[in-house]
């Protein structure tokens, strides 16, 4: 039976730095009749590039602890972060298929009276929206189509890669994320480097922010060569942070100014469903807070009252 409610795995970046995404997903899921349950006491996923690179067994154990919270309640998990998805989905998958790892993890979990059982699945918001709600139902909810708005996509990496394991989409020519975003009525703008990484993952942003920003800059320049876009949409808050706050950091490190509005797909849909930007706090993205700027409302076709 298809689930109707999910445990909502928040992770770190969404609730602690980009809470507008948390607010927006609550609006969008409610509009579509999908339930989000608090996942009390969930921790960091933990960050797959960082923890997975340090000690695989510790990474898998902390991820498994999060999974056991959902197992106890009997609902699947949904997350809006590619990184959290990578940790929780991958750990769930590996623990279901690797007995040696599972034994090691359960031995560790025993010290906190928990056990990984392998009884639940992990869904990205994108999966829940695409597979469960469905594009037709989403289109029905669109009351403020982004007609004439040029939309570039940044699908990111871990929702669809590694493709042979995830078995979701063709990572060289992905279509699911694009189809979901196109329900908003915006016009998809292809650009050469759409599929390269934002640069933040794998502990690189933590190790050397300038190298990470070079990836981001390459994406932006590639997008400008394709004629630019009014909005960049991503399914990941860490990518969103890198593309959004990254513009402020690029200005600092490279003295080059980019002014792209960046949204998580649930923020795009919240607006398309007719919610006002203030309802979920679109203007609190760190780019706007630090630059004391606002989204380019006119380009986005949104009327807002000057406060």
């Amino acid at each position: 039976m298809a689930p109707k409610s999910f445990y909502h795995f928040l992770g770190c970046i969404i609730p602690h730095r980009y809470p507008s995404i948390e607010s927006a997903v609550k609006l969008v899921f409610k509009d579509l009749g999908l339930g989000l349950l608090d996942m009390e006491g969930a921790t960091c996923c933990p960050a797959p590039g960082v923890f997975g690179s340090f000690d695989r067994v510790t990474w898998a154990t902390i991820a498994a602890r999060n999974l056991t919270i959902a197992e106890a309640g009997g609902h699947p998990i949904t997350t809006g972060c590619n990184g959290c998805f990578a940790s929780l989905w991958d750990a769930n998958h590996e623990l279901k298929h690797d007995d040696e790892l599972r034994d090691a993890v359960n031995e560790n979990l025993a010290v906190i009276d928990r056990e990984f059982k392998g009884t639940i699945e992990v869904w990205h918001y994108v999966d829940a929206l695409y597979q469960l709600a469905g594009l037709d139902k989403i289109r029905e909810k669109v009351t403020r189509p982004f007609d004439g708005v040029r939309m570039a996509l940044h699908p990111g990496c871990h929702w669809m890669r590694p493709k042979l394991i995830k078995q979701k989409d063709d990572s060289e020519r992905p279509r699911i994320f694009r189809e979901l975003c196109e329900t908003s009525g915006a016009t998809y703008v292809p650009y050469k480097d759409e599929l390269i990484c934002c640069g933040a993952g794998g502990a690189v942003r933590t190790a050397d922010v300038k190298i990470a920003l070079e990836f981001t800059k390459q994406k932006f320049d590639s997008l400008l060569e394709a004629g630019g876009a009014d909005v960049i949409v991503t399914p990941c808050p860490f990518c969103e942070l890198q593309l959004d706050l990254g513009q402020v950091e690029i200005q600092k490190h490279f003295d080059e100014e980019y002014t792209f509005d960046v949204m998580h797909v649930v923020e795009l849909l919240a607006l398309a469903f007719g919610h006002e930007p203030d309802e979920f706090g679109l203007a609190t993205h760190l780019q706007y807070m630090q630059r004391k700027s606002t989204p380019a409302w006119e380009k986005l076709g949104i009327k807002v009252e000057e406060s």
Binding site: R17, E22, M39, T43, R65, V111, G281
Partner: peptide
């Protein structure tokens, strides 16, 4: 910032539940 976007000030993750942090330390 959370309050500004209409959310409870502290989310229901380890930020609210210190016992979760204790479990991570034990692991």
């Amino acid at each position: 910032l959370r309050e500004k976007v209409g959310l409870e000030r502290v989310p229901p993750n380890a930020s609210r539940y210190p016992e979760a942090i204790e479990e991570i330390k034990k692991i």
